[in-house]
Design a protein around this nucleic acid. Structure first.
Length: 655
RNA sequence: GCCCCCUUAGCUCAGUCGGUAGAGCACAGCCAUGGUAAGGCUGGUGUCGUCGGUUCGAUUCCGACAGGGGGCUCCA
């Protein structure tokens, strides 16, 4: 046996170490800074504790605390400390799972006697966690046989279930349980947790954390299993990183579309209407109208034709379409009238198919693109409602395109380009796509699904749009491409959807006459670009934090006379701006100028104009622009009008 | 749907260890006419979410219901 081992570092260099040297010692040998930042290592790609001895020839990389992998370990270790604190404070508590998640961690518990945490408990638990961290307890890895593991966790039924469950599986990557046995980490004589690891060397390595909220969660995410008490927390490598994260959360809260909707007087959800049903106020309605006008104009240019269909239909329609068979739980219950059974529509497609089928169609008419702002109603479970983002009544910018098989590929390619063009016009610049394939519950034949899925895949490749495959996430009648956008603070939202449907044309026995004078089945594409107008509105509101770009702003210009005697000039200037199509509010001088400016700013109006003696004399305005650092005095009214009109026109649809 | 939390003035919130409540903003009136983010004074704010129970008495304690928020997917 040699008196030296050699390990390979990520840069390809090798380093000699004494036999039995650990990952932690390797980090220390490389440098003090690295040793301080190290939380674990990877050995031949697998994560290991810093305390684990390295073997000769291993490829070793140090995981540091500022990386995602490093934070993952910090959060995981902090979750263990949380579990220890809870079991200290609630003797007899059972602990289930406590994984790291994006930006933090959680741990699920079952408290003795079925009691629950309250928000006040979080402070007590945090205090106990601080004591555990101050005690600098080591995370000591233990290896046990499955039988020993079952004994060790005999009074922890969730741990036992994990051990038993994974013992049956052949995977050794999951759960800290494998063919070789189970691994656990011990902090004290009394606290040990089943865990794959790795962990930081000791609790003293932790500390930049915050417990955030109490929630309930079903064991294994299954609503038929017991409900557990979950505590969410966040943890970071430094105080600064923690504070930055908390600040980001505050900023996101300020952007909450429900809050902005009330503050800016855009919309609300009246209690009298019921959950998930919104009314738009005049200002919100104006934004929505601008959105819809733009969309209509673009669709008209792109060869769409407009149709209008009702909100209700007899059950017959949804029997043919398959909705009652496959989607009934998402539909509002039926109304019985004069012997007929009527349903509010959950989708527009069957209605558009009826338009198609109103007469015989020739291949010369295809592709036929039918467009409608179609309002649909879906019975979403109350717990999933979320303002405009998840509502029960909403309007889709919905279209169904009927085409020949040959036309499918070019049509899809054009569509993807159209989608991205529209989203960019609304200020969204980053996109990702998801190709959602056949779900477990589906209609039709698998080989038809393959045809449709391939068509979508080709369109994505042609558009060079990055995408991931979401297996089994398709609609019951069609595979789809979902387009996701990234907003101003990096959050992802699903907006547009494109679906290739081979089922509905069959169910409705649709046909067209081809150039061969024979009857053929058309292909059908479902697509919505905003998705839901309400949802897209909510996303835009959060994206812009309420400060809509000028072309979308409900009020584009606020005009403030300095004194009451400047009012006539202000009215005259407002009239001139309105002549140029601008939306202007005159804020009369019945309170202080500073106060009125503040109000206009809080309304996030793009341009605040102040007019006083000098302006009346010279025909100018003082311009306080939302996006500018400085106020510009003495701008000729005509110059301002032309500049803003041009700014708005740049976003308007081109004729 | 299920679990937890919340519900007091238009809004944001305080408060009452059980004796029908207060602040700021907003709103109304008066004064102030002010050149770039809150001028001053005065005034009214309310079925303390709804229904029921306990009590001499409930906004407060208990229960049910409604509405809202968070969570229920990311594998110790």
């Amino acid at each position: 046996m040699s008196d030296v081992i050699s390990v390979v570092l990520p840069d390809g260099s090798t380093r000699d170490l004494p036999p039995g040297a650990t990952g932690g010692e390797l980090a220390a040998a490389i440098g003090r800074g690295l040793a301080k930042a190290a939380v674990a290592v990877t050995v031949d790609g697998a994560e290991r504790d810093l305390s684990e001895p390295l073997s000769d020839g291993a490829r070793v990389a140090v995981i540091t605390d500022g990386t995602e992998a490093g934070r993952h370990i910090l959060r995981h270790s902090t979750a263990h400390v949380l579990a220890q604190a809870v079991t200290d404070l609630w003797p007899g508590a059972r602990y289930a799972i406590g994984p790291p998640i994006e930006n933090g961690f959680y741990y699920d518990f079952e408290l003795p006697g079925g009691t629950h945490f309250s928000d006040d408990d979080l402070g007590r638990i945090e205090a106990r966690m601080w004591e555990i961290i101050a005690a600098d307890q080591p995370f000591t890895r233990e290896e046990h046989s499955v039988a020993e593991g079952l004994e060790l966790f005999a009074d922890q039924p969730y741990k036992v279930e994990i051990i038993e469950g994974v013992d049956a599986a052949d995977s050794d990557r999951a759960e800290g349980v494998g063919a070789a046995g189970v691994s656990a980490y011990r902090n004290t004589d009394s606290f040990v947790d089943l865990c794959r690891g790795p962990h930081v060397p000791s609790t003293g390595r932790l500390g930049h954390f915050r417990l955030q909220k109490v929630a309930a969660a079903y064991w294994r995410g299954d609503e038929r299993r017991p409900q557990l008490q979950r505590i969410y927390g966040t943890a970071w490598e430094s105080k600064a990183a923690l504070e930055e994260h908390l600040h980001r959360l505050e900023e996101a809260e300020k952007r909450d579309h429900r809050r902005l909707g009330a503050e800016l007087d855009l919309f609300h959800f009246p209690v009298e209407l019921g959950g998930g049903l919104v009314v738009f106020h005049p200002k919100g309605g104006l934004v929505r109208k601008v959105m819809e006008d733009y969309s209509r104009a673009e669709h008209e240019k792109a060869g769409y034709e407009f149709v209008f269909t009702p909100h209700l239909a007899k059950s017959t329609l949804f029997e043919i379409s398959g909705h009652l068979e496959w989607y009934a739980e998402g539909m509002y219950p039926p109304m019985e009238l004069e012997g007929g059974t009527y349903y509010p529509k959950p989708m527009n497609c069957p209605m558009h198919i009826l338009v198609y089928k109103s007469r015989q169609r020739s291949y010369r008419e295809l592709p036929l693109r039918l467009f409608e702002f179609g309002t649909v109603y879906r019975f979403e479970r109350s717990g999933v409602l979320n303002g405009l983002l998840r509502a029960r009544g909403f309007t889709q910018d919905d279209s169904h395109i009927f085409c020949t098989p040959d036309q499918l590929a070019p049509e899809l390619a054009d569509l993807l380009a159209f989608v991205l063009r529209l989203l960019r016009a609304f200020g969204l610049e980053e996109f990702e796509a998801e190709l959602a394939t056949r779900p477990e519950k589906f209609v039709g034949e698998p080989d038809e699904w393959d045809v449709a899925t391939d068509a979508l895949r080709h369109a994505l490749d042609a558009a060079a749009l990055p995408y991931v495959v979401a297996d089994g996430e398709g609609a019951f009648y069609a595979p789809k491409i979902d387009v996701h956008v990234k907003d101003a603070i990096g959050r992802r939202w699903q907006v547009s959807t494109l679906q290739v449907d081979l089922q509905e044309p069959q169910r409705f026995d649709m046909e067209f006459v081809g150039s061969d004078n024979a009857r053929h089945r058309p292909y059908m594409i479902h697509r919505a670009l905003f998705g839901s107008i309400e949802r897209f509105f909510g996303i835009l509101l959060e994206h812009y934090a309420g400060a809509f770009p000028t072309w979308l702003s409900p009020v584009q210009v606020a005009l403030l006379p300095v004194r009451s005697d400047h009012q006539p000039y202000a009215e005259e200037a407002a009239g001139a701006l309105r002549q140029a199509g601008l939306r202007v509010d005159v804020m009369a001088a019945d309170e202080g100028l500073g106060s009125r400016i503040r109000k206009a700013k809080l309304e996030k109006i793009p341009y605040v104009l102040v007019v006083g003696d000098e302006d009346v004399a010279a025909g100018t305005v003082g311009v306080n622009a939302r996006e500018a650092e400085q106020v510009r005095r003495g701008v000729p009214l005509g110059e301002f009008r032309a500049a803003v009109a041009a700014e708005v026109a740049a976003h308007a649809p081109t004729p």
